[in-house]
C-alpha cells in the first residue's frame, strides 16, 4: 500500500514537472522588432524598401515606410510571418513568407527586413534587442511593506 502511494506520488510529481517543462518552452514570450532600414554588410549597402507590410496569421501587425520599426509579440521558439514588399514608389508588390527560429534566451530580436529579403546570412539581419533603462527607471523606488505605511527609506536609500 505504502509502495503504491509512493509510486503514485512520484508519477504525479513527474507529470507536473513534464507539464512545467512544456509550459517553459511553449509559453516563452518574445518580441520581434522589424526594421525597414538600410543595412551595411560586407561593404555593400542594402537599401530599405519604400513600403513593407508585415502580416501574422493574415493580420497586419506593421506597416513600415523607409526607416521605420515595427514589432510583433509571440510565444514559442519559432515565428512565422508574411511580408508584402514594395521596393520603390509605385513599384510592384512582392510576397515573402518566413519562419524564423528564435534563441530561447533572447526576449527581443531585431530583424532587418532588407537583409532578410536579400537572403543574407542570419548574423547580418538578426540581432538581440537590448533595452536601455531610462533615467527615471534608474532612480530607486520607495517600497511600502505594510498597512502602517512604514516605508523602508533607509534600506532603499531614498
Amino acid at each position: 500500500m505504502k509502495t503504491r502511494r509512493i509510486l503514485f506520488c512520484a508519477c504525479a510529481i513527474l507529470v507536473l514537472i513534464a507539464i512545467a517543462c512544456a509550459m517553459l518552452v511553449i509559453g516563452r514570450g518574445h518580441t520581434m522588432y522589424f526594421d525597414n532600414k538600410d543595412l551595411e554588410y560586407d561593404g555593400q549597402t542594402y537599401a530599405a524598401s519604400h513600403r513593407i507590410n508585415v502580416y501574422v496569421n493574415d493580420e497586419r501587425v506593421a506597416r513600415l515606410s523607409e526607416g521605420d520599426r515595427g514589432l510583433a509579440t509571440f510565444t514559442g521558439q519559432s515565428f512565422s510571418f508574411d511580408l508584402v514588399v514594395t521596393r520603390v514608389d509605385d513599384g510592384e508588390e512582392e510576397n515573402f513568407s518566413y519562419t524564423l527560429k528564435v534563441p530561447y534566451a533572447e526576449d527581443g530580436i531585431i530583424v532587418n527586413l532588407p537583409g532578410l529579403i536579400e537572403d543574407l546570412p542570419e548574423d547580418a539581419w538578426m540581432s538581440e534587442f537590448v533595452p536601455v533603462p531610462s533615467v527615471e527607471e534608474e532612480e530607486d523606488e520607495e517600497i511600502v511593506i505594510d498597512e502602517f505605511d512604514m516605508a523602508m527609506e533607509d534600506d532603499m536609500g531614498a
Binding site: 512544456a22 509550459m23 517553459l24 509559453g27 516563452r28 514570450g29 518574445h30 509579440t73 510565444t75 526576449d107
Partner: peptide
Amino acid sequence: WQIWGIPG
C-alpha cells in the same frame, strides 16, 4: 522568465 499566456 517571460512565460506568457495560458502556459504562464
